[in-house]
Nucleic acid binder design. Structure first.
Lengths: 200, 200
DNA sequence: CTACAATCTTTACACTGTCAAGATTGAGAG
DNA sequence: CTCTCAATCTTGACAGTGTAAAGATTGTAG
């Protein structure tokens, strides 16, 4: 990777996304300004506008990239447990929680309404739907294995995702009572959560 | 209520909270500036600082007030179905969803990390915990009635809340696939979600 | 080699949160 | 009733923000 010193950056778009993620992790969502991101990428404060219509568009790109990574991690884990559907579900869920805890601010940006009009960003919509499809397919193999009751896999996936997503949210917001967190390890908690919807 | 024309407003603190909620519903979370709120309350742009340390403190107050209202609505509904635990659960959940849909931006402010250091606002923490206790008590009466399996009511409440909260979130973010929303009514969906954790 | 389109910089503006200094007021002490 | 003071509100200022417009710089297609 040659040291960037040219007028034309070469790959500024991705550099901005990367810088954005870093500032997000460092200064939190309210600390991430376009100007800071530009500066971190070594570029003037208006340069981002050559690649993003506005700040929302950059946030959309960061979110989209986040979903891409989430998908990669979850699908890799899911494939690893292809022959054990029940583990597949738990491990994918665990990966989801890990992803949320790894970089809480990015996770918040992805899900918590910082991005205001998601519908306007087709790539974002596509990537988030791809994740839902993944959950759905895991649910379906669990249904086939008799671990989850039969029925609309869409709704079932929604339940599973809802449980884990809600759990992750409450975790990040610090809403989980301390007594609970001390009682059991996080991992056990995730398993417990999922057992709620599993048969037997 | 006498028309306010005095130098001393009288109840500016609550007036600011009220104005904040209105602007929130009208301009969304990114459109709510302290200065707009002050102007809407008919007061100079710096007046809020007599009552709130900073913008975060105002947001905390709005969130706290939101939790208060959520508690009132849910507890009223819960009491109404005191003798029918299963309905109690479904109706409370339905109230939760309604609350989220009634004023999505306020809901987002309450839950979605707009408030950055919730721990610093004891009233906020207290009020959100009061809501959790309510869910917990509903869960316990459901356990007593044999509708939910026995076990830690804390974890059980977390599951129930997680399902509904996650569902509300996905709803607000527009993540619910259209096919699902057209398939069944929202109300039926909520019931379906909860059936996942209910016995029989 | 040249013109063009993409990329980046500079400059500018309105708006934001916040602070400091001062003006206005109600309420309690004498 | 008057004085005083603390609470409340206003004014003015500042740095930081997102974004638009105009100009500079470059790779690249013709």
């Amino acid at each position: 990777m040659p040291k960037k010193r040219t007028y034309h950056h070469g790959d500024l778009k991705n550099a901005l996304i990367k810088a954005g993620v870093e500032i997000l992790a460092q200064d939190g969502v309210s600390g991430m300004s376009l100007r800071k991101v530009a500066m971190k990428a070594g570029v003037s404060h208006s340069a981002p506008y050559s690649h993003f219509a506005d700040k929302q568009a950059l946030i959309a790109a960061i979110s989209t990239e986040g979903f891409r990574q989430l998908y990669e991690r979850m699908s890799a884990v899911a494939e690893g447990y292809n022959s054990q559907p029940s583990k597949q579900l738990v491990e994918a869920a665990w990966t989801y929680i890990q992803f949320a805890l790894d970089d809480p601010d990015r996770f918040k940006v992805m899900f918590s309404g910082v991005l205001e009009k998601e519908k306007e960003y087709p790539e974002f919509v596509a990537e988030s739907q791809r994740n839902f499809q993944l959950v759905k397919s895991i649910v379906e193999s669990n249904q086939a294995a008799g671990i989850l009751r039969s029925g609309s896999s869409d709704l079932m996936a929604l339940s599973a995702w809802g449980i884990i997503h809600g759990f992750a949210m409450l975790l990040l917001e610090g809403q989980i009572p301390h007594a609970i967190l001390e009682l059991k390890s996080l991992r056990k908690l995730v398993e417990f959560q999922l057992k709620q919807i599993m048969l037997a």
